[in-house]
Design a binder for these strands. Structure first.
Length: 402
DNA sequence: GTCAATTCACATGAAAGAGACCACGGTCTAGTG
DNA sequence: CTAGACCGTGGTCTCTTTCATGTGAATTGACGA
């Protein structure tokens, strides 16, 4: 019985018409043939990197711009083109790309260097060695290769925030210590103010060249969406106005093209599931809500237990009080909750940090205010949309009990 | 009424500890010739 | 004699605690008009 049903599901799925022609176009690692509205930046980067083809060391580049402005894509694209030529001409050159934000991969000094060494063909244990050893190993492979290296450090601000800037200092200094191979750095950051927080020595050597990626405006996002959707969807699938609406959503918060593409993709999936042959404007609204919902639920359920307890405290406080909540109150509720569930109680100091982490995640809004004589605290309110709140609360309840 | 001092309730920082990982080198053990 | 099991040491990483210091405006209280 069950098997038969399953068979049906697959059968139906196979026969079903989809609005998608090639879904891969929407994957985040997809590199299109051309990158609209970024010709300027691509050219600039190419010019800076070009000396590498003659065996010289290109200047270090620092790139910044908000999320979803095509930084990573453009850099990957240009370096890819560069490599094609280098390979054809047999020029020794190597491009290494590392995303510093990926947990457990490159978000500490040790792991970053280990990751780089691994990319060069020298895998290192994930922990256990002195950091100095890792540097030595890295430099050894570097020297063995005897070629120019271009090092792309994506989301570099995350790394520096966590571990300080002496990683970058060490990396920029590698060239001085050895002459067999040269290393150029490309730093990519979402945070525009990031450079200012760096040590002046690091700053001057890291940003020998700078490139800014401005946000896309609504029209540019539209043309990006059009370009992709022609490849991704079957013909005549898009109802007029859909792209415009998508673009408008994305342009509303700082021109994030990635968000716009995701919105369009999810809208397509919803249309598919509803057996609609076209993507309607309503699907966009639905998609936006689904993305919100998935994000919240994902964050909430993957959080450690202590975090869930804190969040639950905040939510239940808000449902009684309906507005401003303060750290102290959250802590009180949290403590009694811990007693009830027989959980180890953390200090208020830690809870304070946890709350501000939720703030960073966009789950709550926590603003530091001063109540004058009555002290200084965070004013907390929940940012979870009303429609999802009950479900979130229930999920938390289940998780806490377990 | 005005103004500076006080005071509250935390925020924010720094340092350090606990416990989970892990690599490495040395020692012990058992199996092999 | 040698491979593998089994320590102890020393390292990283994450999550916390402890201790210390900072802070913005309502309140207080002294002062002068």
């Amino acid at each position: 019985m069950v098997v038969k049903e399953f068979g049906d599901i697959f059968e139906v799925f196979l026969r079903k018409e989809s609005v998608f022609f090639d879904k891969r176009v929407f994957q985040s690692n997809y590199t299109p043939e051309t990158i609209p509205h970024r010709e300027e930046q691509a050219k600039q980067i190419a010019n800076i990197l070009a000396p590498a083809l003659k065996g010289d060391k290109p200047s270090n580049i620092f790139i910044y711009g908000k999320t979803g402005t095509g930084k990573t894509l453009t850099v990957k694209y240009t370096t890819q083109k560069l490599m094609e030529i280098a390979e054809r001409e047999k020029i020794p050159l190597k491009v290494l790309y590392v995303n510093c934000k990926l947990k457990r991969s490159a978000d500490t000094e040790y792991r970053l260097i280990a990751q780089l060494a691994a990319e060069l063909g020298k895998p290192l244990p994930p922990t256990g060695l002195p950091t100095e050893e890792v540097y030595k190993a890295f430099i050894r492979v570097l020297n063995k290769n005897k070629q120019n290296h271009i090092l792309i450090l994506d989301e570099i601000d995350q790394l520096v925030n966590k571990t300080g800037d002496n990683v970058l200092y060490n990396l920029t200094r590698i060239n001085e210590e050895q002459t067999e191979s040269q290393v150029s750095l490309i730093g990519i950051s979402n945070d525009v103010l990031f450079v200012d927080s760096l040590d002046p020595r690091v700053r001057s050597s890291l940003s020998e060249e700078e490139t800014v990626f401005p946000p896309y405006n609504a029209l540019q996002i539209q043309s990006i969406l059009k370009q992709r959707s022609e490849l991704a969807f079957n013909k005549e699938v898009l109802q007029p106005g859909v792209i415009e609406k998508c673009a408008a959503y994305a342009a509303r918060d700082h021109g994030d093209a990635r968000r716009a593409l995701e919105l369009l993709r999810v809208a397509g999936e919803i249309a598919d599931r509803g057996n609609s042959k076209k993507i309607m404007i309503e699907h966009i609204d639905e998609a936006e809500e689904k993305i919100d919902r998935d994000r919240v639920i994902d964050i909430v359920t993957t959080q450690p237990k202590q975090y869930q307890l804190v969040l639950y405290s905040i939510i239940s406080l808000q449902s009684i009080r309906n507005n401003k909540i303060f750290t102290g109150e959250v802590y009180e509720v949290y403590k009694s909750l811990c007693n009830k569930t027989k959980t180890y109680v953390l200090t208020q100091r830690r809870i304070s940090d946890i709350i501000s982490e939720f703030d960073m995640l966009g789950i709550v809004n926590a603003k530091v205010i001063s109540k004058g004589r009555y002290g200084r605290t965070r004013e907390i309110s929940i940012e979870i949309p009303q429609t999802i709140l009950p479900k979130t609360k229930k999920l938390l309840e289940e998780n806490i009990k377990a």
